[in-house]
């Protein structure tokens, strides 16, 4: 049986100068797998995810292979991909401020995804929408459903986004820094809900984050990206507990600041990754 998602030698180049954003990245996800994609800003995490979903602008050149349940989906026409999107894979975005249409009530935005893939009338989908909003931990689903995004808090918006991504029970949910825009206490609760819902749905998850603590809470496996290249990949315990590459060691060290001496200079990733980007 083939893996749910198999990415081979994925490379992404941008623009006329063909700047390399992602360099021969290979990943595999089985059903229900949780893979964390870790790296600094600009390391190609989001671009990798968008390339997998076929969402990059036309200025990007994508090469390599992306297989979904054994079927090559890289280079499929948009119309074909649209059938998969929302139904088999979906995405939770980083910025809850901009990821919801400011002029559409939250409930309708969730219902839109439902109606699209199940051919459901708006009235018929309402109970399901409310159920989904409750399932992602929103206490007053009726009020939330009838609110515009600007009337909701950041945490509530992020939960609505989760509801949108999960309502069709997709097999893969891509989470692009889903908690980065939230404060720490809200973050922990939103993560717990995400964890539960992914378990319920048995959905696989590609979890993008620069926050190692968050990744270790959600993911069983971790892949570390640097300058668009895969530096290290393995189980979360392996990679974060006993990192092999200097760069990963650096990432882990700067994430565990409780070991830093008061008054001393904080460690930088570069202190560890002297071997440069070509590792």
């Amino acid at each position: 049986m083939s893996a749910l998602l198999e990415v081979r030698d994925l490379s992404v180049r941008f623009g006329r100068h063909r700047t390399l954003a992602v360099d021969r990245v290979s990943l595999t996800l089985d059903e229900g797998d949780r893979l964390g994609l870790v790296g600094e800003s600009g390391s190609g995490k989001s671009v990798t995810a968008l390339a997998v979903l076929g969402l990059l602008p036309e200025t990007a050149t994508v090469t390599g292979s992306v297989r979904w349940q054994g079927r090559e989906i890289l280079g499929l026409p948009d119309r074909e991909l649209a059938k998969l999107r929302g139904q088999e894979f979906s995405m939770v975005f980083q910025e809850p401020m901009t990821a919801l249409d400011p002029l559409m009530k939250a409930g309708r935005q969730v219902a839109e995804v439902l109606g699209l893939h199940r051919g459901m009338a708006r009235g018929a989908s309402r109970p399901l929408v409310l159920e989904m909003l409750a399932a992602v931990g929103l206490a007053d689903p009726v009020r939330i459903a009838d609110s515009y995004p600007h009337q909701l808090s950041g945490g509530q918006r992020q939960r609505v986004l989760m509801a949108m991504a999960l309502v069709n029970r997709p097999d893969l949910v891509v989470c692009d820094e889903p908690t980065t825009a939230l404060d720490v206490t809200v973050q922990a609760r939103v993560l717990a809900t995400l964890d539960e819902r992914l378990d319920d749905a048995g959905a696989a998850c590609l979890f993008i984050s620069h926050d190692l603590a968050v990744v270790s809470q959600v993911c069983a496996r971790v892949a570390v990206l640097r300058h668009g290249r895969l530096v290290e990949q393995g189980t979360t315990a392996q990679v974060l507990g006993a990192p092999q590459r200097p760069y990963t060691r650096g990432l882990v060290a700067v994430a565990s600041l409780e070991h830093a001496e008061p008054g001393s200079r904080l460690p930088l990733v570069d202190d560890f990754a002297r071997d440069g980007g070509a590792s």
């Binding site: 119309r79 998969l84 891509v174």
Partner: peptide, 17 residues
């Protein structure tokens, strides 16, 4: 250029819609 358009596309919503 805003995320909610990308979000709609991820949801499989067609261009016209």
């Amino acid at each position: 250029s805003q995320d909610f358009i990308t979000a709609s596309r991820v949801s499989g919503i067609g261009w016209l819609r």
